[in-house]
């Protein structure tokens, strides 16, 4: 009997300790969604285990400190695939009566239903990163503004540098992102635009799921099958790094055009193997989304696609 009590005490104490150890943000809101007279904005992120999204979140937190006219509740899921978990996070934001939600959706269709629920609860919603599906939004009867970069135009610009360098008839391959992901499709379309405009010959186009090690394997077999490849159009820098490893190992004369401008590619842009990459200022995107959300709270109507800044990075402007 004593042991039973001890066990119960143990589980209770553990749960309480574990919880008490967690950082707790402001819970003493004087009015719902209006902490200290400032409106509460929920930032719902995804893939926080990925440095890119972590930086986006950090950028937003810093930006909100500078603005100092809203309370930010920042949450997110660890994986891009945790759709269910992200829906639960949005539901929590609705429950907390946030004035606005800024969301980087884990899935462009699956989040539409809960976003519509938020809109109908009179919460302003701003979509960042990946655009929510137009058809699904229409079906749900809501209109949500999208704040984000033009991935297709960015990929076209990056691919054009490679096309200009190789000239007409240059032989290239594309490394695609996750099949079905909107930004992967947009970037692939942009590369295809550059291939068509520059008169390049496309030998192969395959996915490496955004990942370095997979790109390394995929590109190695591409180069074995087509030893005459002259250029790679990589849909992100992580995959470009995998391809560059193969190029260096085999001392092949292959140039790479890429996307993202992560710090790790700087040396390759300087050395000339990567002729272009594209900065879409990812760390600013959530902050931009919050700015639009605040405009909407102030009564402004924001609709459609609000394009954010992108910048082509080459050897000339990357610095040393």
């Amino acid at each position: 009997m004593r042991r039973r009590v001890a066990l119960t005490a143990m589980i209770t104490a553990t749960a309480a300790l574990a919880l008490a150890g967690c950082g707790q943000e402001s819970t003493d809101d004087p009015a719902p969604g209006q902490a200290g007279g400032k409106p509460t904005v929920c930032l719902v992120m995804k893939s926080l285990a990925n440095e890119y999204f972590q930086q986006m979140q950090d950028g937003a937190v810093k930006h909100v400190q500078e603005r100092n006219d809203l309370t930010l509740e920042s949450t997110g899921t660890q994986n891009e695939t945790d759709v269910d978990g992200q829906v639960a996070l949005v539901e929590s934001c609705i429950t907390k009566l946030a004035r606005a939600i800024v969301i980087a959706p884990a899935d462009s269709k699956a989040l539409v239903q809960v976003v519509a629920k938020a809109v109908k609860a009179d919460i302003k919603v701003v979509n960042i990163d990946v655009k929510l599906d137009d058809g699904a939004l229409q079906q749900a009867g809501v209109d949500v503004p999208f704040v984000g970069p033009d991935n297709r135009d960015g990929a076209r610009q990056s691919g054009k540098v490679l096309a200009d360098l190789l000239g007409r008839g240059g032989k290239v391959v594309i490394l695609e992102g996750n099949p079905g992901a909107d930004n992967a499709t947009q970037r692939k379309n942009g590369f295809n635009d550059a291939v068509a405009e520059g008169g390049l010959t496309l030998l192969d186009s395959k996915t490496a799921h955004w990942e370095t090690d997979e790109a390394n394997q995929v590109f190695a077999s591409m180069l074995t099958a087509h030893p005459d490849i002259q250029g790679v159009l990589a849909s992100n820098d992580s995959m470009a790094l995998g391809a560059i490893k193969v190029i260096q190992e085999r001392r092949a004369n292959v140039k790479v055009a890429s996307f993202d401008n992560i710090p790790a590619v700087k040396e390759h842009v300087q050395s000339g193997v990567m002729v272009a990459t594209l900065d879409q200022y990812g760390s600013k995107q959530a902050a931009d989304g919050i700015d639009y959300a605040m405009k909407m709270i102030a009564g402004e109507t924001v609709t459609g696609w609000q394009k954010t800044e992108i910048k082509l990075i080459t050897k000339d402007n990357i610095g040393s």
């Binding site: 066990l7 143990m10 589980i11 553990t14 749960a15 574990a18 919880l19 967690c22 950082g23 707790q24 943000e25 402001s26 819970t27 926080l48 509740e73 949450t75 997110g76 899921t77 660890q78 978990g85 639960a88 996070l89 929590s92 429950t95 907390k96």
Partner: peptide, 27 residues
């Protein structure tokens, strides 16, 4: 759900969930 509402980050939420599972099997 409770940790979400308290604004606890996903990383910490994952750790707490793991700790609860371990406590459960010890019990």
């Amino acid at each position: 759900n409770g940790l979400n509402l308290m604004g606890v980050s996903d990383f910490q939420r994952t750790m707490v969930t793991g700790a609860v599972i371990i406590v459960a099997v010890v019990l």
